[in-house]
Each structure stands twice: as structure tokens, then as C-alpha cells.
Amino acid sequence: MIVGETHGLAAPRITRSTLALYAGASGDHNPVHIDTDACRAVGIPDVFAHGMLSMAYLGRLLTDWVPQERIRAYDVRFTAITPVNDTPVCTGTVTRIQGDCAHLDLKVALPDGTVTLTGSAVIALG
């Protein structure tokens, strides 16, 4: 790894089926992720993706880049929602090398430029 190196992952389009399957797998059946009528009842126009689903896609970016056992830290902050039918893109950039670890900045963004997650990771180099 070198400073400035960037990797990306285009997540699949977030469909209603994706949200239903993720709800079943995660046990997170919050109506804002699966029930349009419940969303509208509280002023939200439609369902949106679970934040942890986007975090999982960032995790996939990391494990596609390096073996899982080299990941020393992984943190995110949720900054915006991911609407149904959007296609998030995950990116990670090496920002510094310190000792035997690389420090990465992470983000998930939508095609319109909205950043839905920001984060960081620390990766062992060897």
C-alpha cells in the first residue's frame, strides 16, 4: 500500500428485495426500511437502506482489498440515507503509513454525490 492508493466497489442497486432480504438476515425489521405506508405516515416519502447494509458494503471493499486478518480497526459515521433504487459506490484511500499500518479514509457516495457514510480503517501492512 502507498499513500494515495484508492480502491472502489460499486455496490448493487438497492432494491426493495435487497431491503427485505437484509431485514431478514439482520433481524432489523424497522418499518422505515421495508414499509412504504409506515414511512409516509411519518412524513418519509419511501423506504431507505439500513445504514449497516452500507457499512457491510464498505466491509466488502476492505476484504476485497486485503485479507480480513489484516484489518485492525474499522469505524464509520452515518451522514445521509440511501434511498431505495440508488446505487452506492464505496471508496477507500490510503492517507498515511504509520509504522506497520496503513490508515485509510472510507466513504460511501450516491451517484448524485451525496455521501452517506464516512469512516476510517487501519490495515496491517504485513
Rank of each mutant, 00 (worst) to 15 (best):
I2F: 14
V3R: 03
V3N: 00
V3G: 00
E5C: 00
E5R: 01
A10P: 00
A10W: 01
R13F: 00
R13V: 15
R13E: 12
I14M: 09
I14E: 07
I14D: 09
I14V: 15
T15P: 08
T15F: 01
R16I: 00
S17I: 05
T18A: 13
A20S: 11
A20L: 08
Y22H: 09
Y22T: 08
A23E: 06
G24C: 04
S26N: 06
G27A: 12
G27M: 06
H29N: 12
H29V: 02
N30L: 08
I34Y: 03
D35M: 04
T36M: 02
D37W: 00
A38G: 13
C39T: 01
R40A: 12
R40V: 04
R40L: 04
A41Y: 01
P45E: 06
A49Q: 06
H50F: 02
G51T: 05
M52A: 09
L53G: 09
A56D: 05
A56G: 15
Y57H: 14
Y57C: 05
G59N: 10
R60Y: 07
R60G: 01
L61N: 02
L62V: 12
T63Y: 14
T63W: 15
V66M: 12
E69Q: 12
E69L: 05
I71E: 07
I71M: 10
R72T: 07
Y74A: 03
Y74R: 05
D75K: 11
D75G: 03
V76I: 15
F78P: 06
T79Y: 11
I81E: 11
I81Y: 05
I81S: 13
P83T: 09
V84L: 12
C90R: 06
T91A: 11
G92M: 14
V94S: 02
T95W: 07
I97C: 03
I97K: 09
Q98S: 10
G99A: 07
C101H: 07
A102F: 11
A102I: 08
V108M: 15
P111V: 14
V115H: 03
S120D: 10
G126D: 15
